[in-house]
């Protein structure tokens, strides 16, 4: 008779899988066992699987062990337990799962046609290309801020510091991945880091332009905060998926939690610390080229009519 024994790691991942034949299968720490488990809390002979040809059932028998055998979801085995395919047992600090060969499996998944995005991002060529694009983009942004003749080298040098972000990002996730899934996937995280810094930059610029275009500073603030939350959350999700074995729900909770906590803390410090006198000590304004104006210019009369409300705002400071 055949039977499958899986030794599970944390989070349910299968660490070892054995397909065994015979009517008696021994599981324990000693080397004479069919399945050897290197866990000091497991007895030398811990568990016996026995096939009864009469009723066609496997029985799981705890060998009167010191620490016992626990059927997950039920409790300690006091007597032979008639096995159902897929039962999981805790022995010592380890968990095993026992399956019959006819155990149902999930339907075959269709291979994605072509490579998925993640595969592209994981390619070192993509990572390098994205880094170069990031460098180029920031150099261009520097160029647009220049009022004098500048050499390309100077622009590149100034843009170079922005590349620290993808590298730090990749190092952190690589470390997490190395610990959690034994794989750093540095190139993937480097690509993600480049994309993150570029999208944050694009967000900041568009928020600034929209705020200017609609003459609304609050719009800039809100767009930026919301956008940052969404972006950070999305990139955290990607990182978590690649670098950990977390379940989907948990991943969502963690990514959203971290992202919005960051946004919340930033907003909180902004509102708590914002002393109007301090922030007005040098009040500077956004100014963009004429094409960025997204609103019609009002007439002077309309503008003057609105100033009454501005006076009314002063009443909040009355003592």
């Amino acid at each position: 008779m055949e039977i499958v024994v899986e030794v599970l790691a944390r989070h349910g991942r299968v660490r070892e899988r054995y397909k065994l034949s015979g009517a008696d299968i021994a599981i324990g720490r000693a080397y004479q066992n069919d399945v050897i488990i290197g866990d000091p809390y497991v007895c030398p002979l811990h568990l016996q699987l026995h096939y009864n040809a009469e009723d066609g059932c496997w029985r799981v028998v705890d060998q009167s062990t010191q620490n016992g055998t626990f059927l997950v979801g039920t409790g300690r085995l006091r007597q032979p337990h008639i096995l159902r395919s897929g039962d999981e047992f805790d022995i010592g600090e380890s968990r095993i799962r026992v399956l019959l060969p006819q155990h149902e499996i999930a339907a075959t998944r269709r291979l994605p046609s072509g490579r998925v995005l993640a595969d592209y991002l994981a390619s070192p060529i993509t990572a390098v290309a994205l880094l170069i694009c990031t460098l180029g983009l920031f150099a261009f942004a520097q160029y647009l801020g220049q009022g004098k003749e500048t050499k390309l080298q100077e622009l590149l040098l100034e843009a170079l510091m922005f590349l620290a972000v993808p590298f730090v990002w990749a190092c952190v996730w690589g470390l997490i991945g190395r610990v959690a899934v034994h794989e750093a996937r540095f190139a993937f995280h480097l690509s993600m880091g480049s994309l993150l810094v570029v999208s944050l930059f694009a967000l900041a610029i568009s928020a600034e332009y929209l705020g200017f275009g609609f003459s609304n500073d609050n719009l800039t603030l809100w767009l930026e905060s919301l956008g940052e939350g969404v972006l950070v959350c999305a990139f955290l999700l990607g990182g978590l998926q690649m670098a950990t074995q977390m379940q989907r729900l948990r991943r969502w909770v963690v990514a959203n939690g971290i992202a919005w906590a960051l946004v919340g803390i930033t907003m909180l410090t902004y509102t708590v610390k914002s002393d109007p006198y301090e922030s007005q000590a040098s009040m500077s304004f956004a100014l963009k080229p004429p094409f960025a104006r997204l609103q019609a210019a009002t007439t002077q009369d309309d503008f003057m009519a609105g100033l009454g409300d501005t006076f009314a705002e002063l009443e909040q400071y009355a003592e």
Binding site: F212, S215, M283, A297, G306
Partner: peptide, 26 residues
């Protein structure tokens, strides 16, 4: 003095658009 309260708009001045920030404090 109180902090400034401001009004910011695009205003047509002499036929051309201008960005105007007008601030007042008491």
């Amino acid at each position: 003095v109180t902090p400034y309260a401001c009004e910011s708009r695009f205003v047509e001045v002499g036929g051309q658009p201008w960005k105007v920030h007008w601030c007042v404090r008491q």
